[in-house]
């Protein structure tokens, strides 16, 4: 049973660690499916985390924090949208720029407003999204296996965790069962087809980047108000890029995106759990190798050695009417 307990613990932290990845990954999915590449997920998530931490600290309400995060993150998404859609600039360059602005601004403003070395004040109570206990979690705790899975693994997470996992089928539904989703997928593949069908390419893409902004805002909020008790500088620590890797890994599809994020979250949880202790059969695996594994796997995937990841055909290219 000891192994089982450890497994439950590792899986539980897998869920917690994969949530920010999942939210950011789904965020990127909306943008990239519409043909706007976004390597600025990291920056938007970070800005969202800071905004939520700051607003929650001032207002004492996690919900105000969430709203602030979404607002700030959507603003940055619109900057990216303006550069990529209206100004037809280089999407990669724009994403890089947003990452830097967010990295610098969160620290400067955090220090100026709260003077805690770039942190926002420690949050308690209503300032955070605390754990929710599912019904009967306590009662079922003693039921072997199933009870443990229910009460330890499924119950006791913050609202945002459930939201993140709810977003997976929801995104699938939006993408494949709504008019917006149909058009979104179409514009990322062939914007000319959308244009000749009488739909505005620009407005459609702007809506897509707004979706991205909302979800990165939630991802940031999760980091600052659920996983932690406030904003810490550089708290995204590359998660935006792992999310991007997961998106490629999932070939831009929502359900595989969830599994890719869980896989990367699991690798993270495992490396924390192992802390350099030896694995059966393999022996001692350096912690750093585990940390690099998501990136290594993505490179191997991109090289086409495990199936080919083909991005949306119109991705990265500003739409100009054919002359």
């Amino acid at each position: 049973m000891d192994f089982f307990n450890v497994l439950i613990l590792v899986l539980d932290s897998t869920v917690r660690l994969s949530v920010p990845l999942l939210l950011a990954c789904l965020a990127g999915l909306y943008s990239e499916r519409s043909g706007i590449f976004d390597i600025g997920l990291e920056g938007k998530m970070l800005a969202g985390a800071f905004a939520s931490g700051a607003a929650a600290a001032v207002s004492g309400s996690a919900w105000v924090g969430l709203a602030a995060a979404i607002l700030v993150s959507v603003f940055l998404a619109l900057v990216h949208g303006f550069a990529s859609i209206t100004s037809r600039g280089n999407q990669i360059v724009s994403g890089v720029a947003i990452n830097f602005v967010a990295a610098g601004a969160t620290i400067i403003l955090g220090q100026a407003w709260f003077s805690q070395g770039g942190r926002t004040p420690l949050l308690t109570g209503d300032g955070r999204f605390g754990a929710l206990n599912l019904p009967f979690a306590a009662e079922l705790r003693d039921v072997p296996i199933i009870g443990q899975i229910y009460s330890e693994l499924l119950s006791g997470h913050s609202l945002l965790v459930y939201f993140a996992f709810f977003m997976v089928p929801f995104t699938w539904w939006v993408l494949f069962r709504t008019r917006f989703g149909l058009r979104l997928r179409a514009v990322g593949e062939n914007p000319a087809a959308v244009d000749t069908a009488g739909i505005s390419v620009a407005w459609l893409r702007y809506r897509a980047v707004i979706c991205t902004g909302i979800l990165t805002g939630v991802a940031g909020t999760y980091l600052a108000l659920a996983q932690n008790a406030g904003f810490v500088k550089d708290m995204t620590a590359g998660k935006g890029f792992i999310a991007l890797a997961a998106l490629i890994f999932a070939k831009w599809r929502p359900v595989p995106a969830m599994f890719a994020c869980l896989l990367f979250g699991f690798l993270d949880a495992l490396s924390i759990r192992l802390q350099g202790s030896p694995l059966p059969l393999i022996g001692k695996v350096p912690v750093q190798f585990m940390q690099a594994l998501p990136y290594i796997l993505t490179v191997i995937l991109l090289a086409g050695f495990i199936g080919k990841a083909i991005p949306p055909r119109a991705g990265g290219v500003p739409y100009v009417k054919e002359r």
């Binding site: 008019r179 989703g181 149909l182 179409a186 593949e189 062939n190 087809a193 069908a197």
Partner: peptide
């Protein structure tokens, strides 16, 4: 209506999806 020289079709969509693109009517596809 126009049939362009270079087809304005979304390559990985079904025939039906291509036909309704822009003429879906209501927000839900079903």
């Amino acid at each position: 209506g126009m049939v362009h020289q270079h087809f304005m079709l979304v390559q990985n969509f079904s025939v039906l999806e291509n036909v309704i693109l822009g003429m879906e009517g209501e927000p839900l596809l079903n």
